[in-house]
């Protein structure tokens, strides 16, 4: 009983506290945005961890899928719920935005999952560093495609998502984005965790250990790879949709290879194949970025330097491939990460 309820109750309490604090403006917009970014980065790092950690591939073009999700969901939500210069009158009444928004996010995720096919299909034959290249190339291809579609702003970027948020706030004056980011973060962690620890999903870990052996043990490796890549890029797409609506503006340049590098750093900082590791590292990394902001450009020297030093002392990342409950077994009383 204790084990079953303690985590949901704790999460609900956390959500309620943050929402109430945001509602009565105890925490200002800046801190709210940081909290939102923490959530988004958790989705990004844990979804990339599915491919890079659990499956052991080296995908370094995650930002491409984030971009697909961001653009698809932004265009859909702007076209459906707002009066826009390009897309004209709203196709649906704006007061339904709060119902439509999660669906729009899911649509962005699905589109990103199909973009993941761009990587998943070549991965049947290629492995390792050759696959790394394909992911980088996929990132570049997606970015240049977006730049060349003038209807969605091209290189100028795309905006208008704030109006969707305002449409939701017209219905009820609550911090909607905190609610959505929180929900989707929890959902994606549950999805990844349940998938990886299921008997079916063990195939992914088998591929990481030894692909040939996995194949002999009747793991359908192609199918597993397809699922892993599509799930990973789909979740990244959802994160992208959230990111676009939090910022209110997307630009193809913000999803270039540097963003992918950030995602990679979070995965390897947390430890390959550890879900709690990537959650921890996403929180730490986001907070570190904000804390070091006063340093300005030195920040981008200090953070890599910190990471290099960390790698020297703990070359397997913060958690290695263990979960939090492996390190503190007492925690299993409250939650079981299996």
């Amino acid at each position: 009983m204790k084990q079953k309820l303690s985590v949901p109750v704790a999460l609900l309490a956390l959500l309620m506290t943050v929402m109430v604090l945001a509602q009565y403006e105890v925490i200002d917009l800046y801190i709210q945005t940081i909290i939102l970014f923490v959530g988004i980065n958790i989705i990004i790092s844990s979804s990339l961890n599915l491919v890079n950690g659990h499956m052991g591939e080296f995908s370094c073009g995650h930002a491409g899928f984030i971009a697909v999700g961001a653009y698809v969901s932004s265009v859909l939500s702007v076209a459906l719920f707002t009066q826009d210069r390009v897309f004209g009158a709203p196709l649906l009444p704006p007061q339904y935005a709060f119902i439509g928004f999660p669906l729009v996010l899911l649509a962005g995720g699905i589109a990103a999952a199909f973009a993941g096919l761009l990587v998943a299909l070549p991965s049947f034959k290629t492995r390792g560093d050759y696959l790394a290249i394909i992911t980088i190339a996929a990132n570049y291809i997606i970015i240049t495609l977006i730049i060349n579609i003038d209807k969605i702003g091209g290189a100028r970027g795309f905006m208008g998502m704030k109006r969707v948020i305002f449409a939701m706030e017209d219905v009820a004056e609550i911090p909607w984005m905190i609610l959505w980011v929180f929900l989707f973060t929890i959902l994606s962690i549950i999805a990844i965790r349940r998938f990886v620890s299921s008997t079916y999903g063990k195939g992914i870990i088998a591929i990481q250990q030894d692909e040939v052996a996995a194949e002999i043990m009747s793991v359908n490796t192609n199918k597993m790879k397809l699922i892993a890549f599509m799930l990973s890029s789909g979740l990244a797409g959802i994160a992208g949709g959230l990111y676009a609506h939090v910022i209110g503006y997307v630009n193809p340049k913000s999803f270039d290879i540097l963003k992918s590098t950030e995602a990679l750093v979070m995965v390897y900082l947390g430890g390959m194949g550890s879900i709690t590791g990537s959650i921890l590292s996403a929180v730490l990394f986001t907070l570190l970025l904000e804390l070091l902001r006063p340093l300005q450009i030195i920040k981008w020297v200090a953070i890599p330097l910190l990471l290099i030093i960390l790698m020297q002392f703990r070359p397997e990342g913060i958690m290695g491939n263990r979960e939090l409950s492996d390190i503190f077994p007492r925690l299993k009383k409250f939650y079981r990460f299996k």
């Binding site: 590098t261 390897y268 450009i297 981008w300 020297v301 330097l305 990471l307 790698m311 070359p315």
Partner: peptide
């Protein structure tokens, strides 16, 4: 004997240091 990919990440970080160190 760190995993190969951790060395790759270190290389990425070294690149960032060179770029931004230069800028600073």
């Amino acid at each position: 004997g760190a995993h190969r990919l951790y060395v790759v990440i270190t290389a990425l970080m070294c690149g960032l240091i060179l770029e931004n160190g230069n800028l600073a």
